[in-house]
Simulated scan of single mutants.
Amino acid sequence: MRGEHRHELRELAETIFADARSRASASETGFDAGLWTTLEQAGLARLTLPEAAGGSGGSLTDLAVVLEAAGAYAARVPLVETDLLAGWLAHAAGLEVPAGPLTAATAELTIQPTGDGATVSGTLPRVPWARAATAIVVLAGDRVLVLPPAAVEITEGSNVAEEPRDTVTVADVTLGPGAVAAAPDGATARLGLRAALGRTLLLAGAARGALAESVRYAGERVQFGRPIGRFQAIQQQLALAAAEVAAVAAASAAAARTAAADGFGADTTAFAVAAAKARASEAAGVVARIAHQVHGAIGFTREHALRLVTTRLWAWRDEDGSEASWNDELGARALAAGGEGLWPLVTGAP
Results as ranks from 00 to 15, higher is better:
101 P>R: 04
174 T>C: 07
160 V>C: 11
164 P>F: 05
157 G>D: 07
84 L>D: 05
90 A>S: 14
53 A>Y: 08
173 V>I: 05
96 E>R: 14
94 G>T: 05
96 E>F: 03
155 T>H: 14
114 T>F: 04
102 L>E: 03
56 S>Q: 03
134 T>G: 13
173 V>C: 04
80 V>K: 06
181 A>T: 12
144 V>M: 11
169 T>C: 04
59 S>N: 01
149 P>H: 08
116 D>C: 09
127 V>D: 03
180 V>N: 03
88 W>Y: 14
75 A>I: 11
91 H>V: 00
161 A>M: 06
59 S>K: 11
107 A>V: 06
128 P>L: 09
152 V>F: 14
120 V>S: 14
174 T>Y: 02
171 A>M: 13
137 V>M: 00
152 V>P: 11
137 V>D: 01
57 G>C: 00
172 D>Y: 08
154 I>N: 12
142 D>F: 06
59 S>F: 12
75 A>R: 12
123 T>L: 12
82 T>W: 08
103 T>H: 10
55 G>E: 05
120 V>A: 14
56 S>E: 07
104 A>G: 06
66 V>P: 01
146 V>G: 07
139 L>N: 10
52 A>I: 03
158 S>M: 09
176 G>M: 04
167 T>Y: 08
75 A>N: 02
87 G>A: 08
162 E>R: 15
68 E>N: 01
118 A>I: 09
50 P>E: 07
142 D>K: 15
163 E>S: 13
181 A>H: 01
127 V>E: 01
140 A>W: 04
98 P>V: 07
159 N>S: 10
182 A>C: 02
76 R>F: 02
169 T>A: 15
68 E>P: 04
111 I>W: 03
152 V>I: 09
179 A>K: 15
48 T>C: 07
137 V>W: 00
75 A>L: 11
72 A>Y: 07
64 A>G: 13
94 G>A: 10
173 V>D: 03
49 L>R: 04
169 T>G: 06
69 A>C: 14
93 A>C: 00
105 A>H: 08
53 A>D: 13
145 L>M: 14
138 V>M: 10
63 L>P: 00
69 A>N: 01
145 L>E: 14
77 V>G: 08
179 A>I: 07
182 A>M: 08
61 T>Y: 03
71 G>I: 09
148 P>L: 09
119 T>C: 02
161 A>E: 13
66 V>T: 05
132 A>C: 07
96 E>G: 14
156 E>P: 08
171 A>P: 06
54 G>F: 01
69 A>D: 10
133 A>W: 05
106 T>Y: 01
146 V>E: 08
75 A>K: 10
149 P>A: 04
49 L>Q: 04
98 P>K: 02
92 A>T: 11
157 G>W: 06
49 L>T: 10
151 A>D: 15
50 P>K: 00
120 V>P: 15
175 L>W: 07
52 A>N: 00
97 V>M: 06
137 V>T: 13
